[in-house]
């Protein structure tokens, strides 16, 4: 650093502030998103449970937020016996 570096050194607090603002706007969005996935999972579980017995971990909900397209992935695993019974019902 030059002899007079201390005169030209840019203050660091504005950089801290800007980094925090960017980071937290992202983290808050992610937190909101995972809540949405959890709510969806609960509601889907409740709907399925009306018609058949299902284990909690057999319903997986994933949200991926991209810049252009976001995807919602819902994966429900149903026991083979229940699936067959449902097909053969009148």
């Amino acid at each position: 650093m030059s002899l007079f570096g201390f005169l030209t050194r840019r203050s660091s607090a504005p950089i801290a502030r800007e980094r925090l603002q960017i980071l937290l706007s992202h983290e808050r969005a992610v937190a909101g998103q995972s809540d949405l996935a959890a709510v969806l999972q609960e509601e889907i579980l409740a709907v399925i449970a009306k018609h058949m017995a299902i284990e909690r971990d057999k319903v997986q909900v994933k949200l991926d937020r991209g810049s252009d397209v976001s995807t919602l992935e819902i994966d429900i695993e149903i026991p083979a016996t229940i699936a067959r019974a449902a097909e053969s019902a009148p």
Binding site: S11, S12, A13, R17, L20, Q21
Partner: peptide, 16 residues
Amino acid sequence: RAARGEMLKVEDVLEI
């Protein structure tokens, strides 16, 4: 230090 720009100011933290 906050006045010198070396530390986040009260207003910065409050705003965030």
